[in-house]
């Protein structure tokens, strides 16, 4: 197991390198000059050149990449062009908020998805199965930003139960587990949870249905196991695949919540990313994409390792 772990972690290095190259190049390919946004319109050619030199933008691309990556490993991700603040601080603050939102959505979505999926798989081809299927397909198909707006209209505008935007009285920088903050989390987290509920319940339904139709389920009943025992066996069989789907979903929740964060003005990475795009804030854009991508890589690593740990059929040596 340990050698598998080490080998799997070493495999991450080339992937991380590839990710960093793509992050760097993507931003270079994008049209537009990042400096036009912050420079005076009547800046002279000399002033422009000086500014370019100050940000290192006059050097050839490989050199720029080497400088960027060199600083990166020292924890320096450069300064935001728009605000002048260190990118690292901006990104980590935002990622922390996004993670809070993503984990909350996952905490709502995964148990509900697993429960519904199991129910549908167990009662396959009954009205329960059809109801769950209809629900999960609706959940996956409804655009979640639209759902977010509808929820805001119902719960914030009409009923005035929950706030519609922001992360609470502490703003983007401080979070506390009290009602004043949590009530801001409810609507975005619920909205974000709808898609993974659908995906997880579809996955678990397919897994449970498939496993329940296997011979060993009959064999378990034949040796006198109770229904609860059998369901325990089914859960253990489904766990590896279900966990990997959920791990990837958590990755999507973190990186894919741009629209939801925009709808609810949630100060997370998606919000930061959309601002960085509109302001052509190159270092901030690179930093945010890189951190989100690396998080995804890390999620994959964790999923693989957990899967190998709980499923004996996966080669561990």
């Amino acid at each position: 197991m340990l050698s598998y772990l080490i080998r799997r972690i070493l495999l991450v290095l080339p992937v991380a390198f590839g990710v960093s190259v793509i992050c760097f190049l993507l931003v270079q390919i994008a049209p537009g000059d990042p400096l036009t946004a912050i420079m005076a319109i009547d800046a002279t050619a000399e002033e422009q050149a000086a500014m370019r030199a100050a940000y290192g933008l006059d050097k050839p691309l490989p050199i720029q990449y080497a400088i960027w990556i060199g600083n990166l490993v020292q924890g320096d991700m450069g300064k935001s062009i728009a605000t002048g603040r260190p990118v690292a601080a901006e990104v980590f603050g935002a990622v922390k908020n996004s993670l809070l939102l993503a984990v909350s959505a996952a905490v709502i979505a995964f148990p509900i998805g697993i429960f519904l999926g199991f129910l549908a798989g167990y009662f396959r081809d009954t009205w329960i199965d059809r109801a769950v299927t209809a629900l999960s397909i609706t959940g996956v198909s409804v655009p979640n930003y639209w759902l977010g707006i509808v929820l805001v209209i119902i719960f914030s505008v009409n009923l005035s139960w929950l706030p519609s935007m922001g992360a609470g009285p502490g703003g983007s920088q401080s979070w506390a587990w009290d009602w004043a903050h949590i009530r801001h989390l409810v609507l975005p987290a619920v909205t974000l949870a709808v898609v993974p509920i659908g995906i997880v319940s579809r996955t678990v339904r397919a897994l449970a249905g498939d496993i329940l139709s296997q011979d060993f389920v009959d064999a378990l009943y034949a040796k006198g196991m109770s229904r609860a025992d059998v369901l325990r066996h089914v859960a253990r069989n489904a766990a590896a695949t279900a966990l990997s789907v959920m791990g990837l979903q958590l990755g999507y929740l973190l990186g894919g919540s741009i629209l939801i964060e925009t709808v609810f003005n949630w100060p997370g990475s998606g919000f930061l990313l959309s601002n960085a795009i509109f302001q052509r804030d190159l270092p901030l854009l690179q930093g945010t994409i890189l951190i989100l991508a690396l998080f995804f890589v890390a999620m994959n690593l964790i999923v693989d390792v957990v899967q190998a740990a709980i499923d004996p059929r996966i080669q561990r040596t």
Binding site: F216, A219, A222, G224, R236, P312, R313
Partner: peptide, 30 residues
């Protein structure tokens, strides 16, 4: 009654044993 009084050997042992439990566990469970 099942497994105590009457028990069964299945046609496909590869499918009739639970793949994620050790064989010792599966016998002991019964």
């Amino acid at each position: 009654y099942r497994g105590g009084e009457v028990s069964m050997v299945f046609q496909e042992p590869a499918l009739a044993l639970d793949p994620v439990y050790t064989i010792g566990h599966q016998i002991a469970e019964s």
